[in-house]
């Protein structure tokens, strides 16, 4: 047990080093930085104009403005990990075959499960680190616009975001384990997440008036809904100026945890049988 944990720690630390020195990391970091700057600009520039958007005599209450701003930040925040996961996790297993690094690691006296879990945790960590600048920008902007704001809801959304990063990374690891070419892995992840999930959502929602709560993108939509219970991706899901109820939050978290477990178990089964020709 001790030696397994020691091996896991070694695998994790060296994979993380390889991740955060990679071009992919700098690319994602730049993408997140640009998104942060745009959100800061949007928040500061358009917040004073919110009142004029609603053609009423009375001004929009401050707490609603706060919720709208944080909703928008979290809405963007819930999409960014998908790009990070695609860059870090999609090639995670396929690259070992395509780049032939598997010849080195498969011949080491370490269980493949340790290699997989170590790399998975490293990829999820790299995605989390790359998201840090966005979270810090969100908090700083919120404090600037709404002095004395309570960070509880923001921290809750960041907590759910971390679970989502683990879920989307596990899911992309599973996709990656199916392929021996990085490109197939990238494309398949994008197609499943942005086309298959959306199409399934649209069909079930429009034709059967059924909320496909089990899809990972729907589960992730709970991150902005912590502030306003609005889900643009689910038709007829209702609208509430309050945050999503606890039951919705717990259901979404459960879905993410199920994705983590099922994806990792599947990836592990495939990875254990993976051969390098």
């Amino acid at each position: 047990m001790e030696s397994t944990l020691s091996s896991l720690s070694t695998v994790y630390s060296y994979y993380l080093k390889n991740y955060y020195r990679s071009r992919s990391f700098y690319l994602i970091f730049s993408l997140v930085s640009v998104a942060s700057v745009l959100m800061i600009y949007l928040s500061i520039h358009y917040l004073p104009k919110i009142d004029s958007l609603f053609s009423t005599q009375t001004s929009v209450p401050s707490d609603l403005k706060e919720k709208v701003v944080l909703y928008l930040w979290s809405y963007v925040m819930s999409d960014l990990p998908v790009f990070a996961a695609v860059f870090f996790s999609s090639p995670a297993i396929s690259s070992e075959i395509e780049n032939r690094t598997a010849f080195h690691i498969f011949a080491l006296p370490v269980d493949r499960s340790v290699l997989l879990i170590g790399k998975y945790l490293a990829a999820a960590s790299a995605a989390t680190i790359s998201m840090a600048i966005f979270v810090v920008s969100e908090m700083a902007t919120a404090e600037y616009l709404f002095p004395g704001i309570s960070f509880n809801s923001i921290l809750l959304s960041v907590g759910v975001l971390l679970v989502f990063i683990l879920a989307i990374s596990a899911f992309t690891f599973m996709v990656s384990s199916l392929f021996s070419k990085n490109l197939y892995s990238y494309i398949t992840t994008f197609i499943i997440y942005f086309i298959v999930f959306n199409a399934a959502n649209l069909i079930l929602s429009l034709l059967y008036n059924y909320n496909a709560f089990f899809l990972l993108d729907n589960a992730a939509s709970v991150i902005p809904r912590i502030f306003l219970n609005v889900s643009p991706s689910v038709f007829g899901s209702g609208f509430s100026l309050n945050g999503a109820p606890l039951s919705t939050l717990l259901l979404s978290l459960s879905i993410m945890v199920i994705y983590i477990i099922c994806s990792l178990v599947t990836a592990l089964v495939i990875f254990e049988r993976k051969e390098v020709r």
């Binding site: 060296y14 020195r21 690094t101 080195h104 080491l108």
Partner: peptide, 18 residues
């Protein structure tokens, strides 16, 4: 082939630790 962003020393240390 080895992980491209790790140095030769790091790769040898990684193997030695494992």
């Amino acid at each position: 082939e080895f992980y491209p962003y790790l140095t030769g020393r790091e790769l040898l240390e990684f193997t030695a630790k494992i």
